[in-house]
Design a protein around this nucleic acid. Sequence first.
DNA 1: TAGATTGTTAATCGATTAACAATC
DNA 2: TAGATTGTTAATCGATTAACAATC
Lengths: 215, 215
Amino acid sequence: MADNLEIKKIPEPTLKRLTLYYQYLSNKLEQEIEQISCTDIARDLDLTSIQIRKDLQIAGAKGKPKIGYTIEELLDVLNSSLGYDNINEAFLVGVGNFGQLLLNYKGFKEYNFEILAAFDNDANKIDKTINGIKVFDINKFEDLVKRMKIKIGIIATNSDSAQQIADIMVQSDIKAIWNLTHFNIDLPNNIIRVDVNLSESLSMLLSKLSNMYEK
Amino acid sequence: MADNLEIKKIPEPTLKRLTLYYQYLSNKLEQEIEQISCTDIARDLDLTSIQIRKDLQIAGAKGKPKIGYTIEELLDVLNSSLGYDNINEAFLVGVGNFGQLLLNYKGFKEYNFEILAAFDNDANKIDKTINGIKVFDINKFEDLVKRMKIKIGIIATNSDSAQQIADIMVQSDIKAIWNLTHFNIDLPNNIIRVDVNLSESLSMLLSKLSNMYEK
DNA sequence: TAGATTGTTAATCGATTAACAATC
DNA sequence: TAGATTGTTAATCGATTAACAATC
């Protein structure tokens, strides 16, 4: 009884790898391959088979000894543990370079993810349509979020406005924020935050390079 | 003797936090604050003071009991352990949306990072100049990398070309690759790879959101 | 001096890896 | 049947947290 009420908390490193497996397996399925073993996946993705077995187990996959896993079944399991089977509708704030990039991005459909509207405070951008997505005045954000019951907000403004937009999102009952600025926004901890921090990523690269030369 | 020859290998989680501290402390310095304690940093960044003390120790910082750390000294230490004090010159391949975003990005100077040239295979883009950076034909890549001794390559093409460009980079003696596609590129393991995988990041958000609603 | 904070060693925690029985 | 692969429990490893002495 307690069992299926339990929260299945997937560890972050596992979660990251699960997304990898998903991409990898989608690819395999297109090549009309039906069965696969951890050994195969491990070789191709440069991981260990034990780790993959463990990850798949956490996601809830079932395989058959000697035979392996059915790719279609694996994709189903991953699909649901990664939350791709929900209605993933989002609003984007900030129609600058990064914002426009996302509005034009084709790869989101795979995850059932859709940006339904964009917001900005620049009169030159408001009421324009980008890739079929209309840009609204930021002051309409709260009302539209509540009426459309949107849960996901994307912050693609410049860093200076990030916190202010985050506050508006919190007030509008947004549940999860995808933050594309390099500002470390402050949120109540019942709200999910995922950052794409280009500076952090670049910094990782530079420091690894620098450490390499110290060897 | 063996001591200073030893490779100071900073753990990845620490490295990520160090970049955070760097941004945070730069900010503090602008506000003309000179001293800071782990307790202060912990409160502001929502971490524990023990962890910060450990991280700073790994980076090689020295503080004074009761007083704390001198911000300027901390920034110096971080600057060098994060590799910002090297000459960080890069070539970018792929002048699409993401590529142009990076060419126009102002925040890199802080890290002494500079994109010196861009490359594409589209005749409409070749010989154009974006934000002062010239776009060359991709077939000039290897020669220019070798002549200018460039170590960092950025892949901002579409995912389909990512592996092919990576191979060209390896052959050209690039040491570190910043991969902005969601393709899982395959590299010899003496080459540094850092990915900005928007799909992975989005997927993290969706699965966290989905897990939240299962509670 | 007293108290806050650093520096460092030890304990804990969680993720990865190893080992091995079960099984197709 | 034999061998490869899954599933699961135990061992290892590394990062985080706790504890506490040193000290400004």
